[in-house]
Design a protein around this nucleic acid. Structure first.
Lengths: 344, 344
DNA sequence: ATGAAAGCGCTAACAG
DNA sequence: CTGTTAGCGCTTTCAT
């Protein structure tokens, strides 16, 4: 009769069955065949393990094997639907590959990003997917240098020597602003996100180049803001709308920014698109149902996450031969009702 | 001169400095005083550790100490803003307490929930916060039985012997439906979530009891649906709206359900609230900006997560004396424009 | 004030 | 076909 215990170990199993730990270990790892272990022994061990509800201790396993089947994920804000949908697709892909996820939220702060990174490293994750805050990559450089697989997602650094999965932010912004221009807009404001981030810089570059293409001068006072958050969207829009000559269109560089902008527009008693047109980066489940259905630049959130995990996995599997790659996923303009045709 | 290495261990440090691992360990754990280690030795070790960028291996530490400073989190859908905001508040609280988080998404499936649970258990988390799918709790019972700290969040099981943090769904629903009744509604439909879940049952009970209180007969054909997802909201609303005599109001039991319902209502060319009133569980960042600003029952998402983590921590700290508790957080009716006063 | 050694649970090289 | 043993990196008891 087998004695039940809440924490069954290999040794307990082995002792109760009269086998050695190695034999039990081998069977439980499906290596019975390799070691020509008798069918009898195998079934005995297998059924005992099941009966005693044996769960291998992954700490011990990880320590011994030098791999944990765990990957670390650091993102700026898990409550932002953009990131949470990415997190979800990573989780799904990771699980298929038998990996678990350690999650860190950096709260859009490099300080927390560094702290989280340290936690993950000390827990010996097999690889890292990071959507960096984007101010600074000093702390990230050591990761590939130490041979730790890393893929960066959404926000990147040109010089960082690792794989990258990002959206084609530049062309997304171009497409957005040209769409505005085609609709007769010339005074197009832009509410930016985090200034130093690649995402922001690429989008702003698109904003500027679209103007150039159409020989429309840039009014630098129409380029406001400095963070991807709601509050910044609100403040930016407030500022823009209080100008003596208001912009005819606002290009919001994130979902949260457009949310804040809508709050400001509402508060000013203005209507979209009659009083101001609004076009926003990031598609949302609710875009269709807004007071004015919102025209957006959609990113491929799910593919972003899925690709990142696939690439990371490849690197984990063959770390020595691996060469970093950069995947850039196209965006898509989704036309709804928030941009008005105007005549000059 | 110290030799740099990418994976510095205690032993490496000790060898290079000419101390024993025990001494180095003691200093690095702040126990220099207890062991009367000389100030000199202490500073030498501390600065060397810093210089070599020593990061303790938490696998080894966990194995030895039988605790990992890691908690497991299982939720049905991290991309749902309701859960992602909870996840965020848990993460914040956990980090304050020096804990890391292993995340599993159960995809609203008990199968994945069980699988995730197994992963987390094998990784020896110190405790578990689970928002169960809610169909079944057979697999959850073993958790408290084996002495593993557990707090269940949002969805609960009456007989499960662990702490619970939930919203007062019953009174939330009562308040919602009474609000509808006060506005003259008698044909109030309800699009349900997962039938077996406590959340759903409590809300439906509130829906029914509110009718009873006001002597309004229940029309069981107005109670439709069976999942918290968007698709179910869409289908449920489609069904309700195609009836020969339509309900005057729809009570949606989740944020995703109301999103689906709005899609159906749109599609049918109907207007909220002129053609149908809509009232939904769960507050959203965008509720204010919808075509018709949505009247909602808000839950305290952040406090839900924060409380769960605090309670879990207490249990982890004193497992033997700990008694499970149940925290029920009140909801709040947020009145906007999606409910119309009607006259009979 | 510091070191040696055992052991957490596991795998794998080596030995038969 | 199976067992013995060493060791992953750490903490802690016991010894000095």
């Amino acid at each position: 009769m087998l004695e039940k215990s809440d924490r069954t170990t290999l040794k307990i199993l082995a002792d109760q069955l009269g086998f050695s730990v190695s034999t039990v270990s081998r069977v439980l790892n499906g290596k019975a065949a390799n070691y020509r272990i008798s069918k009898d022994t195998e079934t005995t061990i297998l059924s005992a393990a099941k009966e005693l509800n044996f769960v291998p201790n992954q700490l011990a396993r990880g320590l011994r094997l030098q791999k944990t089947l765990t990957i670390g994920l650091i993102i700026p804000d898990i409550s932002n639907p953009f990131f949470s949908s990415i997190a979800r697709s990573i989780e799904i892909e990771a699980r298929k590959l038998n990996y678990s996820i350690m999650l860190c939220d950096s709260h859009e702060s490099t300080y927390y990003e560094i702290d989280g990174l340290k936690q993950l490293l000390s827990r010996k994750v097999d690889g890292l997917i990071i959507s960096p805050v984007g101010e600074n990559d000093d702390h990230l450089k050591q990761i590939p240098e130490n041979g730790m697989p890393l893929v960066v997602i959404d926000r990147q650094f040109p010089k960082l020597n690792c794989s990258k999965v990002i959206s084609d932010n530049y062309h997304g912004a171009i497409e957005a602003v040209e769409y505005l221009i085609e609709h007769g807009h010339k005074k197009i404001a832009c509410i930016q996100g985090l200034l130093k981030s690649s995402v922001n810089q690429d989008r702003v570059r698109g904003y500027i180049d679209a103007h150039k293409r159409h020989n429309i001068p840039i009014d630098s006072s129409l380029l406001v803001g400095n963070s991807f958050g709601e509050q910044n969207g609100y403040l930016g829009a407030k500022l823009l709308l209080s100008k003596t000559t208001r912009p005819t269109a606002i290009f919001a560089l994130s979902n949260l920014i457009s949310l804040g902008a809508m709050r400001a527009i509402n508060e000013e008693g203005l209507k979209i698109p009659e009083d101001v047109s609004l076009l926003s980066f990031d598609e949302n489940p609710y875009s269709d149902f807004l007071a004015t259905p919102l025209t957006t630049i959609a990113q491929q959130n799910n593919n972003l996450g899925k690709m990142a995990m696939k690439i990371l996995y490849e690197q984990i599997c063959s770390p020595e031969t691996y060469k970093p790659i950069k995947v850039k996923l196209p965006t898509k303009l989704i036309k709804r009702k928030s941009v008005q045709q105007i005549n000059n």
